[in-house]
Structures are given as structure tokens and as C-alpha cells.
């Protein structure tokens, strides 16, 4: 199948998938339930989410393993099942993907290294365990996402690099500061992320979540000022949710996001998908707009 980073060099914008968390909620996942446990207990619901993205035109889909590190699973008393849950996550997406690619999600652990919450060795071991299981389940790449701290992200990159053959994607989540520049909550800017991740050997970098498509255009510009050739993946959310008539609604429609997608590609994004609040309809619209 080849590497994603080689595919993007052939000058085509690739399409990734949309939200998982919010899709699971629509299928009945309750606040306080473990989303990743559904890989075992609600396999067919998870499979349907993955399939719907393939039908919508995704060239690659993620796995339901964002919170699959043993540190997050521990909250539900499921840390001893990390291997099983992550392997199942990749198997489900593999089944849905057919000849498309599976990019396995690894989210932050919620632990802060500099606070001494966990040691670097424990963190490494958690990411290693998760990545190995995802590879065993059939993933093609690891998508280390929603990162905020460089030390945690670099630890994850290293664990994937040293223990699997997965291609490495790593994306950070940025907020706009009151001065108008972009920083993660730990103070990392898109340019310092770019430098550090390229040096660490990440093959594809970028940004996910955040606050909608328009801000992502500014973020990609900053990444491109630092590196003109590293492949860039963007998973924007459909804006930040608001509660309307008691329902959680995301402001950006498929048309809104598709309208900005060509601009995002023009400033340098190579792979475009969605994060929280995006649906197969968003992905289909984005695919239509850029391909």
C-alpha cells in the first residue's frame, strides 16, 4: 500500500475521517462511559462509524482508541485490558477500511510529566503497549493526536518508533491567545512543534481539534513557515459546541468546512479530515471540495 507520506508527495490532497467521540455519543455512549470499551461491547456500532467514513470518501480512517492508554483506561478499571481493547480498535477499522488506510489514534494520557505524575519510563511503556496492540490489529500508521506538551508527544513518538513499523503522524491542539498567536495550553507554538517533531522523526505532523477550520488555516501557515516539505495533516473540529434547545450542537456545517478546505490545501495541508462535531457529511463535502 505504501507510505502515506509518499502518497501525499504525488500532489493529491488526501481525505481523512471525522469525529469518533461525538459519533459514539450519538449512538448512545453516555457521559462517564468508557468510549474504548465499546470496541468489545458494541463492536457493530463502532464498525458502522468506521464504514460510514469510508463510504463518505475517506482515504484513511482512525481507530476508536484515543483514550486507550492504560492511564486513561485505569479510570474505568480497564487498564489490564489495554492490549485487547486497542487490538480490537484496529481490527474494527481494518475490517471497515478495505484497501484504505488505518491510522491508529493515540491520545494524551492526561498525565503531566513535569509534575511527576508518572515517570518517563511509565509513559513510554504505556504508549509502547498501546502502539504494539494497534499494529497487531492491523493499523498502518500511528496518529498521536491532541498533544499539548512536547515531552509527552516526543515520548510517544519514540515508543512507536522503537517498537513498531507504523508510520508516525503527530498532531497538536492549539488555542488562540489574547495576543492573537497560537499556543497549546503548555505554551508550545506551531513552529516549535514543527521543529521538535521533525527532529524526533515524525513523518507527518499537523494539528487537530482546536476551534474550527479558519484557525487551522493560520496554523498551517505557521507550520509551513518552519518547514516547506513535511507532510501536514489537519483534523479540524466543527467549531466549539454550543447547547441549543438542550442539544449539543457544533456551529460549522459541512458546507462551511468544505468552503474553507481548498484554502487549507492551498496554504499547505496535505491530508484533511475532521475532529469533534464532524460527521460523514462533513467528510463527503470536504472530499468533494478538494478533489
Amino acid at each position: 500500500m505504501g507510505k502515506i507520506s509518499d502518497m501525499v508527495k504525488r500532489n493529491r490532497v488526501l481525505i481523512s475521517d471525522g469525529a469518533w467521540g461525538t459519533s459514539l455519543q450519538q449512538k448512545g455512549l453516555l457521559a462517564g462511559e468508557c468510549p474504548e470499551e465499546w470496541n468489545i461491547s458494541h463492536r457493530s456500532d463502532v464498525l458502522e462509524i468506521a464504514r460510514n467514513y469510508i463510504y463518505a470518501g475517506s482515504d484513511m480512517i482512525q481507530t476508536n482508541s484515543f483514550g486507550g492508554s492504560r492511564f486513561k483506561l485505569a479510570h474505568y478499571g480497564l487498564d489490564s485490558k489495554a492490549e485487547e481493547i486497542n487490538r480490537a480498535a484496529a481490527e474494527i477499522s481494518r475490517e471497515a477500511a478495505g484497501d484504505k488506510l488505518v491510522i491508529a489514534s493515540l491520545g494524551p494520557t492526561g498525565k503531566i510529566l513535569m509534575m511527576g505524575d508518572v515517570s518517563e519510563e511509565q509513559l513510554y511503556e504505556g504508549f509502547r503497549e498501546q502502539a504494539v496492540a494497534l499494529e497487531a490489529g492491523g493499523a498502518d500508521a500511528a496518529c498521536i493526536e491532541t498533544m499539548a506538551a512536547l515531552d509527552e508527544a516526543l515520548c510517544a513518538v519514540k515508543a512507536v518508533q522503537e517498537n513498531t513499523n507504523l508510520e508516525i503522524i503527530c498532531t497538536f491542539t492549539f488555542d488562540k491567545t489574547s495576543a492573537g498567536d497560537f499556543r497549546t495550553m503548555m505554551g508550545v507554538s506551531p513552529s516549535s512543534m514543527t521543529t521538535a517533531l521533525i527532529e524526533a522523526g515524525a513523518e507527518i505532523i499537523g494539528s487537530n481539534c482546536g476551534n474550527g477550520m479558519e484557525q487551522m488555516i493560520c496554523i498551517v501557515k505557521e507550520i509551513r513557515n518552519t518547514s516547506s516539505d513535511i507532510p501536514v495533516l489537519i483534523h479540524a473540529n466543527a467549531g466549539l459546541p454550543v447547547v441549543k434547545d438542550g442539544n449539543n450542537t457544533f456551529p460549522e456545517t459541512p458546507e462551511d468546512m468544505a468552503g474553507l478546505a481548498p484554502k487549507l490545501a492551498e496554504v499547505g495541508a496535505n491530508i484533511i479530515g475532521g475532529c469533534c462535531g464532524t460527521t460523514p457529511a462533513h467528510i463527503a463535502a470536504i472530499a468533494g471540495a478538494v478533489q
Partner: peptide, 15 residues
């Protein structure tokens, strides 16, 4: 509050 320092700075101060 003014976004002039970030989470790590606040954490170190708290320590």
C-alpha cells in the same frame, strides 16, 4: 490570565 505565561509556568510556581 493574560496568556503571558502557560500551564507549565503555573505548575512550577505551584511547586
Amino acid at each position: 490570565s493574560q496568556n503571558k505565561v502557560f500551564v507549565p509556568d503555573l505548575l512550577m510556581s505551584a511547586k
